[in-house]
Nucleic acid binder design. Sequence first.
DNA 1: GATGAATGAGATTTCATTCAT
DNA 2: TATGAATGAAATCTCATTCAT
Lengths: 193, 193, 193, 193
Amino acid sequence: MRAQGRTTQRRLGNAGLRVFARRGFHETRVDDIVRAARTSHGTFYLYFANKEDLLRELALKCSAAIERLANDVPAVGPDSEGAAALRGFLDAFFEVYAHYGVVIRAWMEGQVTDGAVDRLGVDAFTHVARALWHSLRTAGAIHDEATVAALMALLERTSYAMSSRDLGFDHAEAIDTLTTVVHRGFFNGAPGP
Amino acid sequence: MRAQGRTTQRRLGNAGLRVFARRGFHETRVDDIVRAARTSHGTFYLYFANKEDLLRELALKCSAAIERLANDVPAVGPDSEGAAALRGFLDAFFEVYAHYGVVIRAWMEGQVTDGAVDRLGVDAFTHVARALWHSLRTAGAIHDEATVAALMALLERTSYAMSSRDLGFDHAEAIDTLTTVVHRGFFNGAPGP
Amino acid sequence: MRAQGRTTQRRLGNAGLRVFARRGFHETRVDDIVRAARTSHGTFYLYFANKEDLLRELALKCSAAIERLANDVPAVGPDSEGAAALRGFLDAFFEVYAHYGVVIRAWMEGQVTDGAVDRLGVDAFTHVARALWHSLRTAGAIHDEATVAALMALLERTSYAMSSRDLGFDHAEAIDTLTTVVHRGFFNGAPGP
Amino acid sequence: MRAQGRTTQRRLGNAGLRVFARRGFHETRVDDIVRAARTSHGTFYLYFANKEDLLRELALKCSAAIERLANDVPAVGPDSEGAAALRGFLDAFFEVYAHYGVVIRAWMEGQVTDGAVDRLGVDAFTHVARALWHSLRTAGAIHDEATVAALMALLERTSYAMSSRDLGFDHAEAIDTLTTVVHRGFFNGAPGP
DNA sequence: GATGAATGAGATTTCATTCAT
DNA sequence: TATGAATGAAATCTCATTCAT
């Protein structure tokens, strides 16, 4: 594949991400994607075996991004410095979600049927969870499985809400509050001034 | 419509809930529903204009169930009695979610296109959120909008995880832990012994 | 069949005529008819074998009405008295058409598949044509087959136009003019004053 | 759309005209059309939104043909030369009707639901009527609205009869007679020898 | 006599995918 | 490498007709 081909493939990938986000995976027609990418049906099938294959490719990129997140889980101390570190991580988390939200949801709803790729996603999230577990333990906080699951849930759900529906509150402020809540509720953060 | 008709309609509604839950709304074929309800295509279209219309009807019932939840948000004190009250509410919340999870997800993904019904759902969740806000205030805890949103997110996301994927942990135990986390993290609950 | 039954049957017949006229035979649903007759599907099939059967019944009544027309074709002299006689006939013709137009059209379009009934219609129109032929001959006018066909066509087509589309001209005036045209063009009527 | 596509679309249009003529619009199944055009269901819906849309396209062509007729209405003198000119026009009129009869009937029965296209048809016929009005006036004959309407009716109805049912008389002879009748009855044509 | 529920054959329509150019 | 045309399997939906009550 040469430069032109790679460009076309990338254009299709981006178009897919855009249209999936707007319409949802199932409601998206191949026709929508090729129109958004300003190319043709024939071309789409030149680069992807089918609609799911495109999702799979996007899922691969997404899992890589999540793995990077896992490596960036910081140590979170009880003081304001810990809160800042936590906040940086939450920022990064939401960033990934804003970009790959659809893919993540498709994942969670079991629409990624390729077992290997599905596994990659589960693994990536597991790594984030494990990193959080370590961080919680380091902080001397409760760190059993359920707590970690609850923390993950909180992050995912909030990300989803922030990326999909405009809930009428300020983005930065929301992260601030969430940081506080997570810091105190999960990481034994000290009550603020 | 007579008794027999009402029965059939109810049977179709229940079948829909079952099949939607198993297959997801988009993947469900009208054929699946009528087979599950042991009736015919024609009969389905006698009672519902189409698949979406069935979802709409289910959404109506669901919003009523959520409204009932909103009325049952208890006062949550810092002691173990408060924790027990909270736990009761969480139980009820998960119950509704286990029953109507698909509908709620369809709602959140914007598949309920009837504006009026969509509004009912938003309203119902808003009422729950407002009731939680009151309860947080009564408990003397942080109760700004973002905190409430985060709490709602935690409940929803955990409910989803518990109703859809078997995460390999015990149901009752999970609610226990969640109760503790929410009690301490959101309601100023006293640290356990 | 007792009085109540006959009433119901008549109600269905009238409803059919009404709905056929509004929607056309093919576009009419049995459902439309029973709703218009304020009765039920089951009842409809109590009195008619199917939708076509209703059309057949209406066609029977219609052919009787047309036969009566055939018997009322007057002698048409060249003077104003002849014109008056002609006008009376045209009035009657339009009357029948206004009532049974749909049935006649269904006939002409071959939607009455019962051969015997179709024949009744053809016969009835043939009788009218033959009566007109006699009248033309009596008047000393051209009276070959094609002329009669053309005259019939003129009557039918005008009736159709008058019964279906509002062409923005006055009904009575239209019959006056048509009387003049037919009188002069077909019956050797004397030019007016 | 490229050459191949245009060919296929035209093939479908012609097939539609053929099948509509044979079966009638309502009785025609999309299946009949694609079989006649030797193509597939999918292809049909590639070029037309549905059966009505095809009718609409045909109606567009038809209205153009009728507009051409309107421009070809000749002056009709009282002598045999006038009769010949009239005959030429009637020939053209029947030609159009033989080709587009179904469409015209569908029009008159209100099956063309697109208001704009319906309007085109009404306009086209109005133009023919207006041209006939001019011609009648030029000939010094009665030329009020109703007379023109009657003349139009005669032409349409005869065309319909000639194109749809074999009435057992000779085509050419029928036009001859009609020419005579119209010439004398409407255009003040001189009585023949 | 009357009813509304149920049916299923058949029609319409969609859309992922293949193919010839 | 790119394209638009073509396909047909599968889905949705309609509605005349039958039937149990």
